[in-house]
Design a protein around this nucleic acid. Sequence first.
DNA 1: CCCATATCGATAGCAAGCTAACTAATTATC
DNA 2: GATAATTAGTTAGCTTGCTATCGATATGGG
Lengths: 142, 142
Amino acid sequence: MPQHSATLETLLRVIRELRRGYDRSAADVGLTLSRARVLTTLAGMEGATQAELAHALGIEPPTLKRQVEALERDGFLERRAIEGDARKRALFLSEKAHSAAITRFVRAVRTELFEGVDEADLPRVHAALERIAANAARLNRS
Amino acid sequence: MPQHSATLETLLRVIRELRRGYDRSAADVGLTLSRARVLTTLAGMEGATQAELAHALGIEPPTLKRQVEALERDGFLERRAIEGDARKRALFLSEKAHSAAITRFVRAVRTELFEGVDEADLPRVHAALERIAANAARLNRS
DNA sequence: CCCATATCGATAGCAAGCTAACTAATTATC
DNA sequence: GATAATTAGTTAGCTTGCTATCGATATGGG
């Protein structure tokens, strides 16, 4: 197996392990990998609309919609009407989502994920991943 | 944002772009990323049972079951009874799946994905991904 | 031999990604 | 000012991951 096929296999394995592991871990605080990401991203742009948040997250609005729905149901965020435009709804984190437990959890997991990875390699790893993402985005487009 | 958080974000982005791009591209031959992977993995172990193939793919049997179902429906593989054990079914690729078009397609996409990634960096990227996968697998386990 | 246990595969149900298509509301154009 | 075009959000439906559970078949211990 050529080196890049092996690397792709590993990449796909990372995805699966992330889902299995992160979701199992995040269950402690009532979240999932994706929902935690919604919260941490919204933390930097409270008051954003769903479309803005979806864009920041790099996911499609219908995908975000269900997560927002679940997060609102579970008391992590709330949607408020925006005056002047009846279509839009501004998103805000709840107290619960602001709590130290959540941010501590997210930080702990991220740290744990990269444990044992040589810091010096990170920029190169990052650059390679960026390149692969860009290549994937271009697949069958040109 | 610390470097490893940024790298995690990029990793998640790769996942999303891979789905969007690869699946769009694979649609030409009637496949998806995951289904193409089922075929290429089975190519190296024809006659395997579903449990064996699922293990080789690193996915759970119920996940594989639906893919096998779809691939059988679409004429890419067939399930044959195994004599001596009525529970098992052996999996075989069809002519269609063996066709040059499929393998050529898979190879082309894999090449395209890694275009512009420095070959010299690959071992380090691979090692880092392996480490992250292992860390993810251990999350909330210890 | 029989019952307990393990294994294979299938079913059901949940999460999260996508696209396509729709409604309601706003903005732009004539 | 009426109509056309765009935008926000939703709905519906598909794929692929997961876990939990179940039925049927093998296998092993007593």
